[in-house]
Each structure stands twice: as C-alpha cells, then as structure tokens.
Simulated scan of single mutants.
Amino acid sequence: MNRHDPNFSPKIIDVARAAGVSTATVSRAITNPTMVTEATRAAVMAAIAETGYIVNHAARNLRRQQTGGIVVLVPNLSNPFFSQILSGVAAVMSEAGFNVLVADTQQPKGADLQIAQYLHNNRADGLIVLDGAIPESLFADYRRTRSRPPVVFACEWVEGFGEPSVTIDNAEGAMLAVNHLIDLGHRKIGHVLGPLDNVLTIKRREGTISALEAAGLPVHPDWFFEGDFSLASGVVAARAWLATSDRPTGVFCSSDAMACGFMAELHSHGVRVPEDVSVVGFDDIEIAQHFIPKLTTIHQPRTAIGEAAARMLLARLSGNSDDVDSVRLTVELVRRDSTGAPPIR
C-alpha cells in the first residue's frame, strides 16, 4: 500500500488491514458506530485517516434507502440554551456520516406543516425533538403512519407519547435551587415561571413548591411571577417584584435568561444583588458565569444531552429500538455571586 502513489485508491480492505479488523467491522464502525466498541471505532477512524480512505456517504445512503440527514426540532433558535445541545448532536451525527438540519418550531408561518412533513415522510432519516409543545394532533397522525422516521426527545417531551427521551430531573433541579436559598437563611422565596403549559415549567414549579412545603415555608401566589424563559420576561418579572409590597428576599428563575433580565432591571432601579435580593437561575448557559454578578444556577449537561440523544437516535436507526431506553442525566447547583444571606430588616 502506497498512499503517495497517484494511482492508489484505498479500499475498505486496506482500512481493515490497517485497523486489524474485518471489513464487516469497518463497515459497522462507519455505518452503525453504536454496534462496535469505542476502542474499535477509534482504531477504524485512525486507519481511515492513515490510509486516506474516503467514505462514500451518498452511495451508502442509497444502499440503505436513507437520506443521510436528521432533523433537530428546536422551539427557539435565538435561545442560547440550545447551542451546546446542537453541538453535541452534530459531533456524534457527523462522525456517523449524517448531516444535521435544524428547524425552528416557532416560525410564525407554516411551522405545523413543516413539522408534519418531517414526521410523516422521508425528508429525514430521524428526528430529535427539543420542543414539548408540538401539537399532540401531529404525533397522533405520526402514530398512524406506517413508514415514519424514528423520534427521540431531548430536554422536553410530550407526555404519554412513548418515544425515548434524554432529560434531566427538573423538579430535583428546582429543589436544589430553592434549598440553596433556604440554607442561606431565606424564608420568603419567589419563583419566576416559564410558559405555563410547558413541561419544564410544570416540573420546576412542582419542585419549587415541594421544597418550600418541606421546609414549612409559605407558597405565596403573589411571589410566583409570570415568564416565558426569555430575557425580556425576566425584566417584566423584576418590575412585578418591584411593585410587590411584601417582596421575597430570594428568587428562583426557571431559566438563566430570565434571571439575567431580572437582575439587570433591578440594577437599573438601584436594587443590589445579592445584598437586597438573591437570584438563582436554571441551565448554566455561557453568560451565567460572566454576568455581573456571576449567576448562581442549576447546571444542565447540555453537550452530554445532545450527544446522548444522537447516540440514541443512531441506535434506533440501526434497528436496535428494543435496546433504547430513556435516559435522565444529573444536574448540580453551581454557586456563584448572585446569592447570599437575606438582608437584615
């Protein structure tokens, strides 16, 4: 084998020899990486680089009657929360030879029609869905479709749909946030909600209430402020907090974006964080550790969520659906500068 020979065209058998495996193993490592060990896949990838072998994805997809692409349905592409998840998905899928198309489910026109087309025809080999607010009617039609791409949920999910998912324990994360405020001495704790019908909002609200009740603290309806996960809704929540006569001294926001908007608006009114009010976020997006003050928050392993969802979808595409179970990843509290002891009054 001479890579420097201009007439040399490496074949799969050359890769197999270089990796010390069979051609069938090379094929599996390329087309279905979940079917080989990590060490075997690494050896095959190294042999491909060594030999200069070029994988013909178009021919492979034609043989397998696949498009060679998957679609990720995202509820709001402008939300920085999704960046690391998408990065994790792309890293795993590109290694497996799949292109990744990202579609925004909150486009003002034709979103439902576009989603239906992805769910019910061969425009994509599979879907990763990050939006739990997709109309149930679309998934009802999906169940009745014989030829349908496999679906994996990530972060959000549709209750009762039955497809595998990669999630975190949102209620547990909320309890970590509220218990942190309680441990600091706060007894008047508020909560900025996400969209009321969102599964994440529901679970985080449940966790907030559970932590308050377990500590014997009041669940004050006026201290539960409306929001929608956005920066702007955090500003609105801060104005509602300012207009409250009996203000909570600690506030748990259902997203970091809302927490940042909340703190920025308070700063413009001369309210200090954490001296006057402590604030906890949820997600640990990039800005959280650079905001002033640095935001105490609940860390989600976003890259790991994307990677796990992609591997789960690859397993389903390879026909291993029976071995695919839902996964719940752990969260942790990250203590920074936005929380402290309650003010003395």
Rank of each mutant, 00 (worst) to 15 (best):
A341P: 06
I48M: 10
Q117D: 12
V331W: 05
P80A: 04
E50V: 10
S147V: 14
L266E: 04
V71K: 01
I182F: 07
I134C: 00
E172C: 14
F224V: 13
E206L: 08
S245C: 12
N61M: 02
M1T: 14
P135A: 02
A211L: 04
E275V: 11
R302S: 14
P75K: 00
R239S: 10
H57R: 13
D323V: 04
V334S: 07
V72W: 00
T34G: 12
V89W: 03
F139R: 08
P248C: 10
A237S: 06
N179K: 10
P293C: 07
R143N: 14
R3I: 15
N170G: 10
P164I: 05
E159M: 09
R204S: 10
S27N: 09
E136T: 14
F98R: 06
M45D: 13
F139L: 15
L212F: 12
G97S: 05
V280G: 10
T296F: 02
A91M: 14
V55I: 10
A58C: 11
T25W: 02
L317S: 04
N121T: 12
E307N: 04
F82Q: 01
L196P: 09
L329W: 05
G160A: 13
V55S: 05
V251A: 08
L317E: 03
I48L: 13
I305P: 00
D183T: 15
C155D: 13
L119W: 06
N179P: 01
F81S: 01
L313N: 05
C253A: 10
M1Q: 11
G20F: 12
V219N: 11
N320C: 09
V36P: 03
L86Y: 02
G190L: 09
I344Q: 09
G132W: 01
I13L: 12
A59G: 14
R272E: 15
F82I: 00
F252L: 11
R143K: 15
E286V: 02
T296Y: 03
V331E: 02
S318V: 09
Y53C: 11
N7Q: 15
L329V: 01
L127Y: 01
R205Q: 13
V44D: 04
A140R: 15
V21I: 10
L329S: 11
D323L: 08
T296L: 03
P149L: 04
S94N: 13
R302H: 06
I189Q: 07
L138D: 06
N7A: 14
D131S: 01
L73S: 03
M35Q: 12
A288H: 04
V36T: 06
L86S: 00
V44Q: 05
G160W: 08
A341T: 10
A215L: 11
L242R: 12
V199G: 04
H186F: 06
H220E: 13
A58R: 15
G97Q: 08
R60P: 08
I13A: 15
D256C: 04
L242A: 12
A264E: 07
H269A: 15
H186W: 09
T23D: 07
I344K: 09
E265K: 07
D141I: 06
S137K: 13
H290E: 04
N179M: 11
A259H: 03
L184E: 00
E95M: 09
R335Y: 03
S338M: 05
D141W: 14
A214I: 10
Y142L: 11
W157P: 01
L130T: 00
L317P: 01
